[in-house]
């Protein structure tokens, strides 16, 4: 059977399909680098999805919607931050609760928005670059959020690697006691990281409801937040690998659906599990040097900090 898949369309939809997970994962990576494990990604994503959707519908502007989504995610994450950083609640339990809370809250907020069409997010028409034959429609003809998500990845990478702020954040994540002894405000740094993670998750959610699907449906993240969490771990807390993981996962998801639609004679069971299988395999192989991977895991991950202890 002839392959009727158009590679240009495929790469284009790959980038769209990967962006929500990428945004959520890169945010969570920063949170974990600061030594906090926030399992509430799914909850923050879905709250971002409805905040962004609702505001975009009310104002008619997707851009305002995305800002609202980031704010919504960040505000929800501050609830987590307050509980875990000031009240020293257990991070795993609080994160799970945040997911449940976010799912409930979002369906409450979304009551009036079922079946509504959001304002469409314009695709950028980049001069010159967009006119390159093949590459133009493939890579340079997306909406702004796709590029913002890539810029965030690059920014996070540079921030963690080259800046003093990044060093402080990593120090807090490695040994909060040492960072505290050096005079850094551990709680403040962590709150900032949690807020950033929440904002990114919110953006990812809004990308789902405003661009990728685009509509509001209860529970529409359907586990994307958990995939993002898994990608952070398998990417051994490195920005570049998070990007690779998210694009692999999104890409293979789209590819396998396309292969099925084109009627390629590969067993569907194999195709269907391929996104999970290949993403995990590739990331595990890249991170197979166990000593180095272990070094990458923030040493204080998931531990509560109190100045007296």
């Amino acid at each position: 059977m002839e392959l009727s898949i158009n590679p240009i369309l495929l790469v284009a939809s790959l980038m769209v399909a990967s962006t929500p997970i990428l945004l959520a994962a890169i945010g969570e990576m920063v949170v974990e680098k600061a030594g906090v494990l926030n399992l509430g990604v799914e909850g923050m994503m879905i709250v971002g999805a409805i905040c962004g959707f609702a505001i975009a519908v009310e104002t008619g502007s997707p851009a305002v919607g995305f800002v609202a989504a980031a704010l919504g995610g960040a505000i929800l994450s501050m609830l987590f931050g307050f509980l875990t950083q000031y009240l020293l609640s257990n991070q795993v339990a609080t994160g799970l609760a945040l997911t449940l809370f976010g799912l409930g809250l979002s369906s409450l907020m979304g009551q009036g928005y079922v079946g509504i069409k959001p304002p469409s997010t314009p695709k950028l028409d980049i001069p010159i670059l967009g006119d390159i034959p093949v590459l133009g429609p493939m890579i340079f003809s997306h909406d702004l959020m796709v590029y913002i998500s890539l810029a965030i990845v690059a920014g996070v990478w540079a921030f963690l690697k080259y800046t003093r702020g990044g060093l402080i954040l990593r120090a807090v994540g490695e040994s909060h006691d040492a960072a505290h002894a050096l005079g850094y405000n551990v709680i403040l740094v962590r709150l900032a990281a949690i807020g950033f993670g929440g904002a990114c998750a919110g953006l990812g959610g809004a990308y789902l409801s405003l661009v990728r699907v685009p509509q509001w449906t209860e529970g529409m993240t359907a586990g994307a937040g958990w995939i993002a969490l898994a990608i952070v771990v398998f990417a051994s807390w490195r920005a570049g690998r998070v990007l690779l993981g998210a694009y692999l996962f999104g890409g293979i998801t789209v590819l396998q659906l396309n292969l099925q639609a084109a009627g390629v004679a590969i067993p569907v069971e194999l195709l269907s599990m391929s996104p999970y299988l290949i993403t995990i395999l590739v990331l595990v192989i890249i991170s197979s040097d166990r000593n180095r991977a272990a070094l990458n895991a923030p040493a204080s991950l998931g531990r509560s900090f109190h100045a007296s202890s």
């Binding site: 939809s13 929500p20 789902l208 990728r212 529970g219 529409m220 359907a222 994307a224 659906l257």
Partner: peptide, 8 residues
């Protein structure tokens, strides 16, 4: 039920 996957 997975709106994103159904849309894809």
């Amino acid at each position: 039920f997975d709106p994103a996957k159904e849309a894809d």
